[in-house]
Design a protein around this nucleic acid. Structure first.
Lengths: 239, 239
DNA sequence: TAGTGGTCTAGACCACTAT
DNA sequence: TAGTGGTCTAGACCACTAG
């Protein structure tokens, strides 16, 4: 007998069928046939509605595709929207070494703009974290992150992490939604000095408001050297 | 009797129930209760599985939320990824008047880069459409669009539309997926002249590869005046 | 013609919530 | 205790596809 049929007899029947089918087809090429519903009814000794419930879940998930009169097949993988990433993950993905140098990390009182963006009240305490970020040892961007202290108790005291997004992840606060704005501009004198370019060199300004559920977890403004950085974005998703 | 119960007796029962519930709750505040499943069984004289099928669809859609032991309620609207829009729709959304002046519209042979981006073979025929695009009468961007002629038969002959995306829509080719890249740069002499700015002024370069299903429907390169344009992007979606 | 998924019935028992 | 959604059964008929 298939060991998966025996595994965890306490599990719900439709879950057992679902996971059996998931394991069966994982790795199969798109278009490969899945077992027919009546076949699974026989194998598992359950009602057809139970099998349909299991298969429905996999169809909604995008793993399977039903074709009336033909059968159920492994679906072409759906394109999905970009994972929301921070600097460290993004540069690593590009095969570069991401490093950061903290220029400033302290509690501040929220000004009107940042307060609104973070869904705080003006004057509330927030964390302001400014970093010079390098890629392969060369300055890439200056990032000012503003964080809600309430969501990150002890953050400043616990030693700053390399990756803000890893730290958010660890607290179950990885953003699932982000509102970004992107502008072309020229570097100010101070920015130019930090980025090691001439003043008035082209830079890309990138602002983000990152949200997890109902909570605004990060508001940030970054300025990237235009000669080193192209922003890539994937939009939309398959129906 | 409720007129919706009578409407289109040919429709499938689960569809009738689904649309009845959709109409009933549309406009209701999140958290408002939907009818209970057994209530709908009574009202429509159908089996409970049929009602569950109807409700399942609305739950997957994100309109309803089930809470075991309590009931079914109107869900908080999900955040969804940005609709993929073109210049005309985007400027209209910003409350500006979008106008375009065609600088060039002709068949060309695909060069290596554009061929690969459009999933064509080098030397294949494509449509090259260059426009100066204004917002409220002032130059905003120059856009070079490259289109697969096979997908748009008679496009050049039929008179160019104002909105490429409307034209794609009409042919069932509205992109559901886009891969964009964004860079900061300085205007070339030619770009500066068309955009009515000084040479070396900051510009935002925006490239797009837009896809509908398996078909690459548009490859474009746009250059925006940085003093007039900020790109906005929403990323991710609720789970 | 045999097999497939799509729809539908008329029940059942369970765990959970609210009163 | 009454009501809710969650799970499950054992059938049924339909339209469609493929050999």
């Amino acid at each position: 007998m298939d060991e998966l049929l025996e595994a965890d007899g306490r599990a719900l029947k439709h879950v057992r069928v679902r996971e059996y089918v998931r394991n069966l087809v994982s790795g199969s090429a798109p278009g490969s046939p899945a077992p027919s519903e009546r076949e699974l009814v026989q194998q598992f000794g359950v009602a057809r509605m139970t099998v349909r419930q299991a298969m429905d879940a996999l169809v909604v998930e995008g793993l399977l595709e039903r074709i009336p009169g033909r059968g159920t097949f492994v679906a072409r993988p759906r394109r999905t929207a970009s994972r929301i990433t921070g600097y460290t993950e993004e540069m690593t993905r590009r095969g570069m070494l991401a490093e950061s140098q903290t220029l400033l990390a302290r509690r501040e009182q929220a000004g009107p703009g940042v307060a609104r963006a973070l869904s705080l009240t003006e004057g509330d305490a927030l964390i302001h974290w400014r970093r010079l970020r390098r890629a392969d040892g060369v300055p890439m961007c200056i990032e000012d992150a503003y964080l809600n202290e309430i969501l990150l108790p002890g953050f400043l005291q616990s030693g700053m992490p390399t990756s803000l997004y890893d730290a958010l992840d660890a607290r179950g606060l990885r953003p699932t939604w982000a509102e970004d704005s992107i502008q072309a501009d020229k570097a100010t004198a101070e920015e130019a000095q930090l980025l090691e370019v001439e003043p008035l060199t082209s830079v890309l300004r990138h602002s983000r408001r990152a949200i997890c559920g109902d909570k605004v977890v990060e508001v940030s403004r970054s300025v990237y050297r235009a000669d080193r950085f192209t922003l890539w974005v994937q939009l939309g998703s398959d129906a």
